[in-house]
Design a protein around this nucleic acid. Structure first.
Ligand SMILES: [Mn+2]
Ligand SMILES: [Mn+2]
Ligand SMILES: [Zn+2]
Ligand SMILES: [Zn+2]
Lengths: 148, 148
DNA sequence: CCTGTAATTGAGATTGAATCTCAATCTCGA
DNA sequence: TCGAGATTGAGATTCAATCTCAATTACAGG
């Protein structure tokens, strides 16, 4: 946390922005929960602790955290965004259980290589990508099989 | 178109649903434009031709077309859905130019195989996936390079 | 060709995520 | 300590998508 806090402070200073208790609280809350968080989760979590930050401020702070490379936006196919800490957590993709919502993370050199090759072939300059896999996690798969 | 029209008619009959001029018009419009369409595009396109169908009906018809396997929903990372005809157009992924919006389609056996292997390893039962690649198409890449 | 009934439609209300507005408040460097 | 300029929050707004429900329509059976 402390290293990241420093990163954020430095980023804010460089942009002539201010470090406020609301911004600090949002970052702290991201650390507290880890995982893949919705903005709304952060909002209510903060409210419960009386460390309120308005909805607008939560979204604005997430934007800043993304700009400073501390947080990334994740698309889990729910029709709204989730956010996760970058930390030393390198680029990866997500498998989402359509039954219980569980999220598995994965990354694969072969896929990355194949994608690179395909982009070259199409003369497409790749800057980023999202890869969401949907299905049933181990637990839900077993339950489902028994019911049939 | 005619084969697909038959598929749709058959599907509707099997579900005890009715074939209406609005539903016919939406399907016809999908054929007219091909490509990756937004619901809103369909809506205005139909209005211009006085073949009106309300917003609600357009969305409801797209739902039926998906259920009958004629159309699939596409996520191009725009925060709202696009739709495309399935036809004999097999499963594929999309590259989206962040500058001009151009969409390139691709599919890759190696990626499919790697994904299959990863799911097996995680005991995850794969049912579907979305893969969006963002970057610059050939044309925009050239323009961008010259400007720098 | 009729008719009755169940499905369909459309105008407009509603939802939910995300963004915007702007007056009041706060931060931080000098 | 002070003031310029950044920030905040309540509530309005946007936009895609869905819902509501009274009026309309399709179509199976006669
Ligand atoms: Mn993740
Ligand atoms: Mn496509
Ligand atoms: Zn599960
Ligand atoms: Zn382009």
């Amino acid at each position: 946390m402390h290293k990241t806090l420093g990163t954020f402070a430095k980023y804010l200073k460089a942009q002539k922005l201010k470090f406020t208790k609301e911004r600090g609280a949002v970052l702290q809350e991201m650390f507290l929960h880890r995982g893949h968080l919705e903005a709304e989760d952060l909002l209510y979590s903060l409210r419960r602790k009386k460390k309120g930050a308005s909805r607008a401020t939560v979204y604005r702070t997430l934007e800043l955290l993304m700009d400073s490379g501390i947080v990334r936006k994740v698309d889990l196919g729910h029709g709204h965004s989730h956010y996760e800490l970058v930390l030393d957590h390198p680029h990866h993709e997500h498998m989402v259980c359509v039954n219980c919502g569980k999220v598995l993370e994965f990354s694969d050199k072969k896929i990355e290589m194949a994608l690179k090759r395909l982009c070259k072939k199409s003369r497409f300059e790749h800057t980023s990508h999202h890869f969401q896999v949907f299905g049933y996690c181990d637990k839900c798969r077993r339950t489902k099989t028994q019911e049939e």
